[in-house]
Design a binder for these strands. Structure first.
Lengths: 177, 177
DNA sequence: ACTTCCATGTAAGTAGTTACATGATTGC
DNA sequence: GCAATCATGTAACTACTTACATGGAAGT
């Protein structure tokens, strides 16, 4: 059975504990969204598909009069996740960066505007660094969650580097005007 | 009129000269694809839309018996491109990286496999560096194309940095097994 | 009372990929 | 003669976003 990466996001989050679709969305927004986002429009249908496939199991779990459906991994779901994690041959990186796209074509505008584009990109990455630092602060230390921390550190270094590199580009573009 | 970034890829490539849809695809594959890819399935319909909107103009330009349609920017197309380039408030970065996704959930697999994931990511970025160096070698020096060179240098630094950072993560993961 | 949060879901639309069909030209 | 390249295009599909509808609970 072929699952897409978003399905594994759901499986992965459920491996960390029993959760509702709503909670999965919160978890994604506080962690993987920086390299793999997911919306309700993906998560809820995906949960349904995964349940039909027998990889997760949902149970009604109302809180008071509020409807709620909590899911957990089945043994098959756990197996599917581990199998996917063990394949290191299909790792792919895709980027869609409109800042780099604009800079690429920016010979068409005056040098001042080129520098402004680089500055905007720098600011964006700085904002992400701030957001990640916030995530870091609110992250409970859990020996079972070493890898999320590793990836978070990667993300911090990554966006810091990008901010610096765009700052350098900005400088170079300012000098040549 | 609202255009998507892919439309601006087409406009931007046409600003560099008169081209066919086929040629635009080649240009994209040798340059922007690392931060903004585009397939024939996007390019040809986009050219049609842009022509209807009066931003590009296509003329039949057969080579022998082989049909061919070459496009160039209209003054309105040039204006639309410059206007887009002058807005630095809508620059967005989106990443979809299945390597980071796997690493994020990799507490579920033994340390050895975690290190293998980091190694695979490192290799991927090294391959991109090699590809970009190749692009660099085949790039003609043209004072009108300073920004493509700036962006190419950014890309080289970027993927080199990623390769190094994944190498470091790999080491850390090997030590803790 | 009002707002915010918890919670589930879907419909419509946009974006993008893949695979295919077609056919001429060039180089070996 | 054959493979690769030039060239145009579309149909089917997958992925993803946005906006909406619905309603209970908690906080202020």
């Amino acid at each position: 059975m072929e699952l897409n990466p978003t399905a594994y996001v759901v499986l992965g989050m459920l491996r960390l504990g029993r959760h509702t679709g709503y909670e999965i969305k919160q978890l994604v927004d506080n962690s993987t969204r920086f390299f793999w986002a997911a919306s309700y429009g993906q998560i809820y249908p995906e949960l349904k598909r995964l349940e039909e496939a027998g990889l997760v199991e949902g149970k009604a779990d109302p809180q008071g009069g509020r409807q709620r459906r909590a899911y957990e991994l089945t043994p098959e779901g756990e197996r599917a996740l581990e199998e996917w994690l063990s394949k290191s041959d299909d790792v792919a990186t895709e980027m869609r960066d409109s800042a780099l796209l604009k800079l690429f074509f920016a010979d068409a505008v005056p040098p001042k505007e080129r520098a402004a584009l680089a500055a905007a990109a720098r600011e964006r990455h700085n904002a992400i660094v701030a957001a990640l630092e916030n995530v870091h602060r609110n992250m409970p230390a859990d020996p079972e969650k070493q890898m999320p921390l590793q990836v978070l550190r990667f993300g911090l270094d990554f966006h810091s580097w990008c901010a610096d590199r765009f700052a350098r580009m900005e400088q170079e573009l300012q000098e040549e005007k």
